[in-house]
Amino acid sequence: MSRIDPGIGAAGEPLPVGGLPRRRAGASLLVGAVLVGLVVAAALVSFVWTPYDPTLVDASSRLQTMSARHLFGTDKFGRDVFSQILVGARTTLFVGIVAVGVAGVIAVPLGIVAAMAPRWFAEPLMRLLDLLLAFPALLLAIMFSAVYGGSTLVAMIAIGIASIPSFVRVVRSGSLQVLSTEYVLAARAAGRRPVAIGWRHVLPNVSSLVIVQASVAFAIAILAEAALSFLGYGTPPPVPSWGRMLQESQEMLFTAPRLAVFPGVAIAVAVLGFNLLGDGLRDRYDPKLEDRR
C-alpha cells in the first residue's frame, strides 16, 4: 500500500494525484498540452503585439461591450480586456514558474539527499519538512506579503516554499526506488561516489516524476495567485493579472458580467491545462502503470 503524498494547495487544496484511465491517457495529455499551449501562445503573442496598451486608461472608451474594436470589451478604466487577458497570461506563467522554480530548485536536491543520506540526517530533515507542512501556503503568502510588501514575486516565493515538502517527498520516494535498482547497486559496488550516483543515475530517473509534480504545482500556484489577488495580496496594479481582473470585476458583476467571465474562464483553462498535462505525463511515465500495460 503506497501512501499517497498529500501536497497542499493554495486554498488548502491537496494536489490532485491519481491518473486518469489509461485509455484516455493520450487524450488528457493532448487536451492538457493544447490548453497550456494556448496560455503560452497568448503570453508570447503579448510580447510582440496587443491590440491596445493594456494599462492605458481612457475615460472616453470605458465599459464598452464586446465589439470588433474591443474583442472582449473594455473595463471601467477604458482598458482593452482582450489585451489584458493576453498580457495576463504572462503573469500567470510567471507565477507558476517562480513558485515551481523555488520549490524545484530547493526540493529536488533535498529529496535526493534525503533518500541517499544516512538515517540520522534524513529523519530530522523529513521531520523539519513535516513542520513546514503545518504552515499552509495561503498563510505563508499573506505573512510574506506583510513583511516584504505585496508583489507577485514575494507571494509566489511563499507558495513555492509551501510546496517544498510535498515535492521532497515525491522526489525522495522516487529516488529510493531508483537506489534499489540493480544498476545503482552495481555502481555503488564499483565504488562510484554518492554525488556521482545522485547526479548520473538518480536525477535523470526521477526527472519524469519532477515534471509531473511541477505541472500540478503550476496549477496550484495559478489558483493561489487568484485567491491572493482576491484578498488584495496578489499581483499589484497596474500589471494585468487574471486574478485581479476577477477581483476588480466584482463591483460590476450585474452591470458588466463579461468582465468576470473572461478572466474566470482564462484561469480555469490554465489550471485545467496544467492539471491534465500532469495527469497525462504521469500516465506516460508512472512505472507502476507501465508494468501493467
Binding site: 487544496e13 490532485p16 485567491a227 482576491f230 476577477l246 489550471v271 485545467l272
Partner: peptide, 10 residues
C-alpha cells in the same frame, strides 16, 4: 477536473 480548476471564491 473542471471542478478542481474553479477557484472556490468564484
Amino acid at each position: 477536473q473542471v471542478g478542481v480548476a474553479v477557484p472556490a471564491f468564484l
